[in-house]
Computed example of a mutant assay.
Amino acid sequence: MSGDDFQAREFEEHRPQLRAVAYRMLGSLSEAEDAVQEAWLRLGRTDTTEVENLGAWLTTVTGRICLDLLRSRTARREDPLQGQDGREFRLPDPVVGAFGVVDPEQEVLMADSVGIALMVVLDTLAPAERLAFVLHDLFSVPFDEIAPILGRTSASTRQLASRARRRVQGAAPAPDTDRARRREVVDAFLAAARAGDFDALLAVLDPDVVARSDGGTLRPGLVRRGAADVASQAVTFARFAQDGRPVLVNGAPGMLALADGRPLSLMAFTIHGGRIIALDFLTDPERLARLDLSAVLDG
């Protein structure tokens, strides 16, 4: 085997993790692919004969590429979406899979259950904070390997990760892991919504639940907070759910609403303590059209 063939094989072995790193950093599947491709190009331009751990080297290279992309995105960002409360947000690209079907590639991408709610919080972090948190907390990269990427000391990098961790834990508590129980909660919500049972809806919604809708540039963003406010919109949710089919969104229960075989909306549930703490809707027709739904629609 030639040196180039060996390098290509090694890179392909690490590609799933590099995609996972890039997705958590960027929240965009297409940009994540671009970042991984750039890592491959940099590998081809670099003499790695002295590199002891190619996987670690590729991870830090991918992190550096994503950091540059985030900084560039911040510098040229157009007017972001705003909810009714004036807070800016944009839902990340969802990873959609068929309910009850295990996709090995998606399993790697979503290995640490990084749900939509967590991705929303990650998008509020400064680029340096996001890099420190993602590489250290999600991929166990030592601070002394992250620090050179940021041009900081290890101690300063540790502080960045700690600050990001506090924000993440405060805004996106760890979701429940019992898949069957999560499905029960979602089914209970949908049944209550269809029946217009306000009390039953309150029973499955966390008092501080947040509902976010991203309609892109064509439709205004919407943010609602609190169980009573979200429950009051249950009739709208039920309308989407009537012709919906269950899916997995970032490894968690979700619902895809269809009309004439075309996706109308994608709903993701985040469940903590047996109650729904976040509902995220993607209704942007342009982004919905770009989703890979073959496993869902063909199932």
Rank of each mutant, 00 (worst) to 15 (best):
S2C: 14
S2R: 14
S2I: 10
Q7A: 15
Q7N: 15
Q7W: 15
Q7E: 15
A8D: 14
A8R: 15
H14D: 11
P16E: 11
Q17T: 15
L18S: 04
L18P: 06
A20H: 05
M25H: 01
G27F: 03
E31R: 13
E31C: 05
E33Y: 01
D34W: 04
A35M: 06
Q37A: 10
W40I: 11
T46W: 13
V51Q: 13
A56H: 12
W57Q: 10
L58W: 11
T60A: 03
T60D: 03
V61A: 03
I65Q: 02
L67Q: 05
D68M: 05
D68A: 08
L70C: 09
L70G: 07
L70R: 03
R71L: 09
A75R: 14
R77Q: 13
E78V: 06
D79V: 07
L81E: 02
D85S: 10
D85A: 09
D85C: 05
G86S: 08
R87E: 04
F89W: 07
D93K: 01
D93F: 02
P94R: 02
G100F: 05
V102G: 03
P104M: 08
L109C: 04
D112M: 05
D112K: 12
L122W: 08
T124D: 04
P127L: 09
A128K: 00
F139T: 10
S140P: 04
F143D: 00
A147W: 01
I149H: 00
S154A: 10
S156N: 03
T157S: 04
R158I: 00
R158C: 05
R163A: 09
R163E: 09
G170C: 03
P175R: 03
P175S: 01
P175G: 00
A180F: 02
V185P: 00
V186K: 06
D187V: 13
L190G: 05
R194Y: 12
A195S: 15
G196K: 14
F198I: 12
L205R: 13
P207K: 10
R212Q: 07
R212I: 06
S213K: 08
S213D: 05
G216I: 05
R219S: 08
P220H: 06
A227G: 14
D229I: 07
Q233A: 13
A238Y: 11
A241N: 07
Q242E: 15
V247K: 01
L248D: 06
V249M: 11
G254F: 00
M255N: 10
M255L: 15
A259V: 14
A259R: 14
D260E: 14
D260W: 10
R262W: 12
P263N: 07
P263E: 02
A268N: 09
F269P: 00
T270K: 08
I271F: 07
G273S: 03
G274K: 11
I276Y: 11
L282P: 04
D284Q: 04
E286L: 10
A289W: 09
L293H: 02
A295D: 07
V296N: 00
D298N: 02
